[in-house]
Design a protein around this nucleic acid. Structure first.
Length: 583
RNA sequence: GUCCCCGUAGCUCAGCAGGAUAGAGCACCGGAUUCCUAAUCCGGGGGUCGUGGGUUCGAAUCCCGCCGGGGACACCA
């Protein structure tokens, strides 16, 4: 339970009680009341703006309302003090026993702590990666993969019914190019000298083994054949092989999807036609000629009639073409169909995680989803900025032309999957990210992955020692939840519990805002608090976790250490990072 | 030319549905190691939140203009 939400309810109750007494007028809007941690910890643990937001409607001064409310809140059992401050804030201080109980909550819930019912089982569809099946994944894809995967886990933890989806663009011109590239490798495998791979085809070596496999399967049957005879076959083979490659990369990263949707199958099943007719039936399709974009006229611009979707009616800048001049569908058309398909499969809330180069695509897609679902579904597009791969401060050279770039797989093999996943979330998704292959494996506090992992490992080190020094005493989480925790009185100890107790609120906030990076930041803060507490025990030996002559104090502190480890583990599990117990 | 993102300490960035004296790390300076992992911690200096208006009890946060950086801009996906 998010304790801030809980206290919001208690404040609402207090307002109702005051209304019943006639001290406050009826009919107040309580929805703007917020409960949050005060910025300055010396102000207490929970602050509310209730008096200020009710002031106008109640026709009373904020501080007068605050005084009334504070007196009422003071009577609650967990509240040690309710103070009116500043323009009309009410600051609540909670009793130590309240925080001890929160630690018990953590110990009882284990790594499930932080799970929320906020989502109420509402379906959310998260689409991520969706890299074109034309080669192995690069590091930029990896960022989208991690952001999407963790966002999905986060939403699941917040109580949504999450579907994780990959859209396979296996129908476009790029796939034809891939098939031609493969045909070349196939001929090469048959012993033909093909020389340099021509401009415009995929030069990557990853097609070589696929070419060999086809040579083994078909012999020279397609070597001299005209394209029409082999294109379809090679397209299928190529896509299958590339998709296998990508799935392999995803598995190495620990990223999984529930559904792989094929564009090709969608088109073949008439999905695009269906979507088109739906829009058409609502009068949202017309034949027209677009104005050239101002300020940058393409060389080959010519006015031409196109089949257009009225995107401008839904907030886009211009109407968008759905058909090419040869009558075939545009990519946008099939993407509308795809999102419509997701909607018809039950998704009323959709999230797409895309690369930042798709920025220009956001408005039209959001417009299309609004249009085709009649406003019954929402689409949120999260754009991931570029990843700058570095090594010890120097940019890693990458040449896309030669196909000689650093693949995601190479990076995973180099620094490990946990490191890749964590680092990808050390910036918000729309900010550039420097990924330094050397720094991320350093064992120092400058490395956020290590810093958090180390806190968890240190905690388990204490638990291992405790198992010996408290031999015969059950220090499992369930036993500790029942232990006497009254020895936890130090300010830093209580402060750590407060931070741990914020976890459910962090989960809800991050899930609602679709911002998985907040989890990584939260874990960094918990780790910092723990390292700090640890070092307090160096300066003052009576603050060490394990005291030889005070088993009662030791047990209470072991409970805190275990609670911390559980919250960190809970967070790392959302990130898909293994919590290590020893380093 | 239009649209989107960004502009917070010397550097890299947080800032949670506008809230009380704007935070962290790095770097810099000064400290802590007979002791649960010093792989860490503690203290110090450092800011007109790009800029000019507006909205209100209150703005880094919302709205508008400008400046600076990045990205995207018809039948490519």
């Amino acid at each position: 339970m998010n304790l801030f939400t809980e206290f919001k309810g208690r404040i609402a109750d207090a307002v109702a009680a005051l209304q019943a007494e006639g001290a406050l007028p009826e009919g107040l809007d309580l929805s703007k009341i917020a409960t949050e941690p005060p910025r300055d910890p010396s102000h207490g643990e929970i602050a509310t703006n209730a008096a200020m937001v009710l002031s106008k409607a109640a026709g009373m001064k904020p501080r007068d309302i605050a005084t009334l409310l504070a007196a009422r809140l003071m009577t609650l059992s967990d509240v040690e003090a309710a103070e009116v401050a500043g323009p009309g804030f009410i600051n609540l201080r909670l009793a130590p026993a309240f925080w001890h109980d929160r630690l018990r909550d953590i110990l009882r819930a284990g790594t499930d702590y932080g799970s929320s019912t906020m989502g109420g089982g509402k379906p959310v569809n998260v689409e991520y990666v969706s890299a074109n099946p034309t080669g192995p994944m690069h590091v930029g894809h990896g960022r989208g993969a991690v952001v999407g995967d963790v966002l999905a886990s986060l939403l699941a933890k917040a109580g949504y019914a999450v579907s994780r989806e990959y859209y396979v663009n296996d129908a476009g011109a790029q796939v034809d190019v891939l098939a031609r590239s493969l045909h070349l490798r196939y001929r090469e495998a048959l012993g033909e000298g093909v020389g340099e791979i021509p401009e415009g085809l995929y030069p990557g070596e990853y097609l070589i083994p696929v070419g060999r496999a086809l040579a083994a399967e078909f012999g020279d049957r397609y070597a001299k054949a005209v394209e029409a005879e082999w294109l379809e076959t090679f397209r299928l083979k190529a896509v299958d092989a590339m998709l296998a490659l990508i799935r392999d990369d995803l598995a190495a990263l620990g990223v999984r999807h529930d559904v792989f949707s094929s564009e090709r199958e969608l088109v073949r099943a008439g999905g695009v036609q269906t979507a088109f007719e739906t829009l058409s039936a609502n009068g949202l399709i017309y034949e027209g000629v677009l104005e050239p974009p101002k300020g940058m006229l393409p060389d080959d611009w010519e006015p031409r009639p196109q089949t257009l979707f009225r995107a401008t009616e839904f907030g886009d800048d211009v109407d968008r073409p759905l058909k090419k001049s040869d009558g075939s569908w545009t990519y946008f058309a099939s993407d509308i169909a795809y999102h419509y398909d997701k909607y018809r499969r039950g998704a009323t809330s959709m999230i797409d995680v895309l690369g930042a180069d798709h920025g220009g695509y956001v408005k039209r897609m959001v417009a299309a989803v609004t249009a085709i679902t009649g406003g019954k579904a929402t689409l949120d597009i999260r754009l991931c900025q570029m990843v700058n791969l570095m090594r010890d401060g120097e940019p890693v050279k990458m040449s896309k032309r030669s196909g000689n770039f650093v693949t995601l797989r190479e990076v995973i093999d180099d620094v490990g999957r946990d490191v890749v996943r964590f680092i990808m979330l050390t910036r918000k998704n729309d900010a550039h990210l420097d990924f330094d292959l050397k720094k991320v494996t350093e064992q120092s506090k400058d490395n956020p992955v290590f810093y958090v992992q180390y806190a968890h490992a240190r905690a388990h080190s204490v638990l291992r020692h405790a198992a010996e020094s408290l031999a015969g005493i059950d220090i499992g989480a369930n036993a500790l939840a029942k232990a006497d925790l009254s020895a936890l009185t130090d300010e830093a100890e209580i402060a750590l519990i407060k931070q741990l107790a914020a976890w459910p609120r962090v989960v809800e906030g991050a899930a609602e805002a679709h911002e998985p990076h907040r989890i990584a930041y939260f874990l960094g803060e918990v780790a910092a608090a723990f390292h700090s507490l640890w070092n307090k025990g160096r300066d003052a030996s009576e603050l060490r976790f394990l005291l030889a002559d005070r088993p009662d104090v030791s047990i209470a502190r072991v409970a805190l250490v275990r609670g911390m480890a559980l919250v960190v583990a809970s967070g790392l599990m959302v990130l898909g990072v293994t919590p290590v117990e020893e380093m």
